[in-house]
Design a binder for these strands. Structure first.
Lengths: 136, 136
DNA sequence: ATGCGACTTGAAGCGCGGTTCAAGTCAAGT
DNA sequence: ACTTGACTTGAACCGCGCTTCAAGTCGCAT
């Protein structure tokens, strides 16, 4: 008789394939308190499908430069948590500053790609552009 | 008699103060081939002032997500180097994609800061926004 | 000549974000 | 009963970008 083992839950391999993350990464995230299996089949982790959304969020935040510790703090917070709001807002300003910095850098690169100075590093336009990247 | 020791050159401490980088970081960059002292006073490194510009460039590139190895490759390249142009252009596209990603993320954060969903992670607007960050 | 302070070296250590490995568990198929 | 294959664990290892440390070397002032 096949044990039903709750068809709704996902094996770690399944979650890995569908999230694009390595199983080792999922176990690592668990140690860091970012995710948790809903149950175990024997030793095996069984995840709720929503975990995939959570992982998408985690991946996104990590790509954005949040540390895993920051993300864990976010995930653990309640909406009534004023601190959370503040941190969100702070992070928004941070990300916004970074967007502006990267935009200037992109423009520098755009120029560098068509500039004929030798050596490139000495192009006055390029140097000015670089300096402006540093200012904020 | 005070040894003149070329007044134009800078001590590592001076470069550190003016660049905002730790002396240890400067020595580390040297090992990685990013910078080089123009001379030595005995054992002490003596840097040309232009090194400060180079360091500004390095810092900027590093902030932009280049690895030190990438930066070293850039710095070593000639302007006639087609590969360099290509890499510049590739990096520009990369940075541009990142700008768009971060812009969407910033907008998500902006929404999250005013959203009242409990838990926040379940806000449909937020989820949609997060999904859009992932797409490029 | 003695001490101070800023430098020198190589080697080791750290925080982050994981991966890799050895050894073991378990369910299902033959 | 035995193999296969996907999982389990803890511990070790990795690359990156540095920092820290111990031990030593200078130049300069007292």
């Amino acid at each position: 008789m096949a044990e039903v083992t709750d068809e709704a839950l996902l094996d770690i391999g399944e979650v890995a394939r569908r999230s694009g993350l390595a199983p080792s990464a999922l176990r690592f995230y668990e140690r860091k308190g970012l995710i948790e299996p809903a149950a175990r089949n024997g030793l095996r982790r069984a995840y709720q499908p929503e975990t995939l959304h959570r992982l998408a969020l985690i991946t996104c935040a990590r790509d954005a430069g949040f540390t895993l510790a920051e993300i864990a703090a976010f995930l653990g917070a309640r909406p009534s948590d004023t601190t959370l709001r503040e941190r969100m807002a702070a992070k928004e300003r941070e990300v916004d500053a970074r967007v502006r910095q990267l935009t200037r850098l992109r423009d520098s690169l755009r120029h560098a790609a068509v500039c004929d100075h030798d050596p490139l590093v000495e192009c006055p336009d390029f140097k000015r552009a670089i300096r402006s990247v540093g200012d904020s």
